[in-house]
Write a protein that binds this DNA or RNA. Structure first.
Lengths: 253, 253
DNA sequence: TAGTGGTCTAGACCACGGC
DNA sequence: CCGTGGTCTAGACCACTAG
C-alpha cells in the first residue's frame, strides 16, 4: 500500500481513498489480515481521521472490511450466500429449516404488522423469535407474527419453556394448507436488540426480508427477518447463488 | 447470569436524536415537507452539525428522509414496491418488461462476471445497458452480460444506433429455451455512473440484484441490476408485496 | 447571490477487548 | 493497563440549486 498523497481533484478525497484502499485490499492483503489502525492510515494518506473513516465505512458497507472496537480493522471474507427462498413455498419451521426457534411471546404487534395481518389493532398475536446461524456466524434474526386464529388448536403450553412454546406454534402452523406467499426485501438499520443478536452495533445496515404467508384466504402469518447486510448475500432460486463480487471494474466507452 | 443488568449505558447522542426525529416525523410532518436546515436543527438540539448529520444519515438510509444538496431535507414518501421476480422465469426484454434498453457495447467484462459466465477471461461479451423507471422516478440501472455464443445469429447491426443494437441482442435472446435462473440480492454502493443514472451521489446505498440465466446447460446471460436502496422495496412473488413500514403516514395536502 | 447539503480538519474523550 | 474503533465538537470551505 503506497503512501502517495492525494491529488487535488474534483473527486472527494474519501472516494478516491476508498478506491485506493480497495485496490490495495485486492493486491496486498489476505482475508483476515488486520490493517494498520485508523490514526496511522490517516497519517499515511495525509488526511484527517474522519475522512479516512468515511472511506472505511464505505468499504465495510460493501463487505470488504470488518471493524471491531477494541480489536482493529480486518479484511473480510467474501460474503456468504444465504438461501432465502427454495423456490417452492413452505411454512417456516418445517423440515430442514435453517432457523432455530428461540422463544415465543404473546403480545400486541406494531400497527404496521397488524395491518398486514388484517387483524384489528391492539389484538395480540403469537410472536416467535428465531435466529439463523451460517458458517458459525449469526446472520439473521426473525420475528414471526402468528395470529391466534391461525393456530386455534394450540393447547395450553408450558409457558415456562419459551423455546418449546415457539416450536409448538410452528408445529401447529404446519397443519394449515399453505396457499401462497410473497416476499419483499429492503434496506434497514438494526434495532438495538437485533444488533445485539447479530453481534453488530445498533444502526448497522441490514437486509429486511418480509414474508407474508396466505392460507384459507387469510394472511396466516408474517415473518420479518433481519439479515446482516455486510456479511450476507441473499440467494433465491434452486442453486446456491452467484459469486459476483467486487474487483476491478472495466467498461467499454 | 444472576447479576442484574441495569447498567445505565449512555445511548449515543445521534442514536437518541434519530429516535426523537423519527417520532417527530411521524407526528409533526407530512410527506414532502421540508425540514429546517441542518445548522438550525443542530442548534435546536444542542449538538454539533456532524452529530445531527449522523442521525439524518440513518433516517435517509431507512428511507424516511431525502436530502438534496442546494435544496434541503424533505420527508420521503413510503418506499415503493418494485417487482423483481414474477415467480415464473423469463428472459429479460420479453413482453411487458419494466425496463428500457439504453445501449449496447461489446467489451471484456470484469473477471468476476467472466467467471460466472464460465467464459475465458479477456473474452468480450455483449453488454446491454438498461434502465428502469417507476412512478416517474429512476429506480434501477442494469448491466446485462450476454456471451456471443448465446446469440450466434445476431446479424451485423448498425453500430451507430446503440439502442437498436441493445434491442436486437434482447430479441435474439428470446429464441433460446430458458432452462432456469437464480437470483441473489446484496447491499452495495453506487458506482459513479450508476449514481448519475439513479440521480444519487456516488457511494449511495443500492440493492444489487444478480440474476443468472441458464440455457442449453450453459450460463446464457448474467444480469447485474442496481436498485436505489433508499426508495425501493424489492418484491418477489405474485402479488404486489407487503406494506410493512415505520409509523403513521400522512399525506401532504 | 443567498442558502442548502457535502466535504474536511484537528483536535478531544469514551467504550471495549486483549494483555 | 494500553491500543483499538466509536462518538463528538466547532469550526472551515466547497458544490449545487433556486430565485
Amino acid at each position: 500500500m503506497g503512501t502517495t498523497h492525494l491529488e487535488s481533484v474534483p473527486e472527494p478525497k474519501y472516494w478516491h481513498l476508498k478506491t485506493v484502499l480497495s485496490e490495495a485490499l485486492d493486491s496486498e492483503f489476505t482475508v483476515g489480515e488486520i490493517l494498520p489502525n485508523e490514526r496511522e492510515l490517516a497519517a499515511r494518506f495525509g488526511v484527517a481521521r474522519a475522512t479516512l473513516r468515511q472511506a472505511l465505512e464505505q468499504l465495510e458497507l460493501e463487505g470488504r472490511l470488518q471493524r471491531r472496537r477494541g480489536v482493529g480493522t480486518t479484511v473480510a471474507p467474501p460474503r456468504m450466500g444465504v438461501a432465502v427462498g427454495t423456490g417452492q413455498q413452505a411454512w417456516p419451521g418445517g423440515g430442514d429449516d435453517a432457523w432455530r426457534a428461540v422463544d415465543s411471546t404473546d403480545a400486541v404487534p406494531p400497527s404496521t404488522v397488524a395491518t398486514a395481518l388484517e387483524i384489528p389493532r391492539e389484538q395480540s398475536v403469537h410472536i416467535v423469535r428465531r435466529s439463523r446461524v451460517s458458517h458459525g456466524q449469526p446472520v439473521a434474526a426473525e420475528l414471526l407474527y402468528v395470529p391466534h386464529a391461525s393456530v386455534p388448536d394450540l393447547s395450553a403450553i408450558d409457558t415456562a419453556n419459551q423455546a418449546a412454546r415457539a416450536r409448538a406454534v410452528l408445529r401447529e402452523l404446519q397443519r394449515l394448507q399453505l396457499d401462497t406467499q410473497d416476499r419483499a426485501v429492503e434496506l434497514g438499520s438494526a434495532r438495538a436488540d437485533d444488533a445485539k443478536e447479530l453481534d453488530r452495533l445498533p444502526g448497522a445496515p441490514v437486509l429486511v426480508v418480509t414474508t407474508r404467508f396466505f392460507a384459507a384466504g387469510r394472511t396466516a402469518a408474517l415473518s420479518v427477518a433481519t439479515y446482516r447486510a455486510d456479511t450476507c448475500r441473499l440467494t433465491f432460486g434452486a442453486s446456491g447463488g452467484v459469486e459476483i463480487h467486487h474487483g476491478p471494474e472495466r467498461r467499454a466507452s
